[in-house]
Design a protein around this nucleic acid. Structure first.
Length: 401
DNA sequence: TCTGGGGTCCTAGGACCC
DNA sequence: TCTGGGGTCCTAGGACCC
């Protein structure tokens, strides 16, 4: 019997949002479909009175009505047929409408997405219990000690999981199996869709070094740009650099990490459970609002956000003691302020009060496009039942704007 | 006619304590 | 009265990810 080696898998659902929609609307296969939306699209999608969710043709000729409907929504995903028009994820829906007036718009059905997300993860943990949740459509799985996890480098188990997910949900996924999370994540992208890629340590030069640095999970647009400016565009080129040189240019921590990553080294374990660090709610307004002129509207939104955060905390069973706000101005510049209380709270009024104090520390002459409320430094509710005295200062929402 | 929402982690400076 | 550190907490901003 061959020696047991570390086998870490990264599983990524193929076009998850679009695939879930296509299960419901198979007649849309091959058509340009964009999935996403603003508040109104989402309201329509979750309206229990609408038994059948409408399919919306984007009518270019009625731009005003469309704008009113999709607002400032962005695209979550687009089918391949839509991508051919230049439409892509995170693009504004209005821009997409211009690029492809006949595209079909589907609101994201979050309940359905969550249902399928839970379903495929349950299938995985039934087969391989050590799973790390990385969002709705991605997980890491430790194959090392699972039956079949060592056969063909993990291919046999990957195939079993793929097939079981497909048989039970109709959805497809791609899997990469490697000695660690870093390499597994890259491997899962090699053969999309429905791909399986097996990477061993000795594959580093052949399979990893030719890739762009941007393929490393953790190197984003900024770091990539800086690397390019230094004449480095592939992982292989990055690997040629001395660690000390990278530390000089990127700092101690990032420099060491980059050097390790380029050589395929990653010792992060699979994390099967984790506690949240913060819980927040934010909203982009349908139009930019002014602190003075739109005082009432902003005040109402602010109060609603605080209430939503309080509800989220209660539902998840947390309280927190750092209350923060986030503002985005009409020029997209962003500021945050926070305030740490003496004790944890989950109370909407207390959150509203603390957030109000934060708001007073921020310039409010410019129009706003987004407002957010955050609670951090979380603790489990009821862990210590210290009665948090409600602030003596009267809550005065109207004065804040 | 641009650009969502919900997160995590890191850095860096200042306060404050030992 | 000059010269130190280290450690922790708080705050603000930013990069990055899904």
């Amino acid at each position: 019997m061959a020696e047991k080696i570390l086998r870490i898998a990264h599983l990524d659902m193929d076009a998850f949002y679009a695939s879930v929609e296509l299960l419901r609307y198979p007649q849309l296969k091959g058509l340009p479909v964009v999935i996403g939306g603003g508040r109104r699209t989402l309201d329509a999608a979750t309206d229990p009175n609408q038994l059948e969710r409408p399919l919306h043709r984007i009518p270019l000729e009625d731009f005003a009505r469309l704008k009113d409907y999709v607002g400032r929504g962005v695209i979550t995903t687009a089918t391949y047929a839509a991508r051919q028009f230049g439409i892509g994820s995170a693009m504004g829906l209005m821009k997409a409408a211009r690029l492809c007036p006949l595209a079909i718009l589907l609101p994201v059905d979050f309940l359905e997405i969550r249902r399928y997300s839970r379903a495929f993860k349950a299938i995985i943990t039934d087969i391989a219990p050590l799973m790390e949740d990385r969002g709705v459509d991605e997980v890491y799985i430790d194959f090392t000690d699972v039956p079949g996890g060592q056969r063909e480098g993990g291919r046999v188990l990957a195939r079993l999981i793929q097939k079981t997910i497909f048989d039970q949900t109709g959805l497809t996924c791609s899997v990469g199996v490697a000695p660690n999370k870093l390499l597994a994540k890259m491997a899962s992208e090699f053969n999309k869709p429905k791909g399986i890629s097996i990477v061993f340590e000795e594959d580093l030069q052949d399979k990893i070094w030719p890739l762009a640095c941007r393929k490393i999970n953790g190197i984003g647009p900024k770091a990539d740009e800086k690397l390019r400016a230094l004449g480095i565009s592939t992982i292989g080129e990055l690997a040629q650099k001395e660690e000390a040189w990278l530390i000089d240019h990127f700092g101690q921590k990032t420099g060491v990490w980059m050097h390790d990553a380029a050589h395929g080294r990653d010792t992060r374990p699979i994390v099967t459970t984790s506690e949240p660090v913060s819980i927040s709610r934010e909203t982009t307004f349908e139009r930019d609002l002014h602190a003075q002129r739109d005082k009432a509207e902003l005040g109402a939104i602010f109060t609603r956000l605080c209430q939503q955060v309080a509800d989220d905390l209660a539902r998840k069973g947390y309280v927190g003691k750092t209350i923060g706000i986030k503002l985005r101005y009409d020029d997209f510049k962003c500021v945050t302020r926070d305030l740490t209380l003496d004790a944890c709270t989950g109370d909407a009024q207390a959150i509203r009060h603390a957030a109000g104090l934060c708001l007073k520390r921020v310039p409010l002459t410019q129009r706003l496009r987004l407002l957010g409320v955050r609670v951090g430094s979380l603790a489990r509710a009821g862990a210590d039942e210290q009665a948090h005295a409600p602030a003596a200062v009267p809550d005065s929402p109207a004065q804040l704007f």
